[in-house]
């Protein structure tokens, strides 16, 4: 998909540029943009380093555990199919807590561990369970309180204005994701055969 979009944009640019007589501008844009991409990335290093340093302190001081403790009760109600003492609950809670703090690198291994533990509870290993779909709906809607370092670096001082709108939008998308999975899971085309 991405391959076609990227190729399509370049092909259309050359065709349209030739037709409108702007082919020189197209060439110039290609050369300048490539150069600018590297300058831009280098320019982000400082703020990203600042942000990642601060977030590493958050990580090392166990801020994740506090968030985990807060999200635990919500998790139990969202995943009624998982026995409360099952290790999957722990992994899901930690994954969500890492995501809330924007610690993407810490979140992914925990999420994959959660998937493995959910797979142990799955009677049909080829087909996703309700819990898996709920877990992924929450993950793909990205519950986040802290912005990623890349966005903070790119937006600079304006980043401060983005925090609250992002929390608002991500809450809306997470709520929508949860309503969607819980509604769709019992509809005929999506229902598991053995249920």
């Amino acid at each position: 998909m991405l391959n076609y979009i990227w190729f399509g944009m370049i092909l259309i640019s050359v065709v349209v540029g030739s037709a409108t007589g702007k082919i020189d501008a197209v060439t110039k844009a290609a050369i300048n943009s490539a150069e600018l991409a590297v300058e831009l990335a280098i320019g982000l290093i400082g703020i990203m380093a600042l942000w990642l340093g601060i977030m590493r302190i958050a990580d090392k001081s166990g801020l994740v555990d506090i968030i985990a403790w807060l999200v635990q009760p919500i998790t139990l109600t969202l995943f009624p199919e998982i026995p409360p003492e099952h290790p999957a609950i722990g992994s899901i809670v930690l994954n969500m807590a890492a995501n809330v703090l924007g610690l993407g690198n810490a979140a992914t291994p925990l999420g994959l561990k959660a998937m493995q533990e959910l797979q142990e509870l799955n009677p049909d290993k080829d087909t996703a369970t309700n819990s898996m779909c709920t877990f992924l709906a929450i993950n793909t809607s990205s519950v986040q309180l802290i912005l990623p370092a890349t966005v903070v670096a790119l937006m600079g001082v304006s980043a401060s204005q983005i925090f609250l709108p992002t929390i608002f939008a991500t809450s809306m998308s997470t709520i929508a994701g949860i309503i969607a999975v819980k509604t769709l899971q019992n509809l005929k085309p999506f229902k598991r055969e053995e249920n």
Binding site: M9, I10, V14, A25, A29
Partner: peptide, 8 residues
């Protein structure tokens, strides 16, 4: 960048 410069 090319897409913008071409007018597309």
């Amino acid at each position: 960048g090319m897409f913008r410069a071409s007018g597309a």
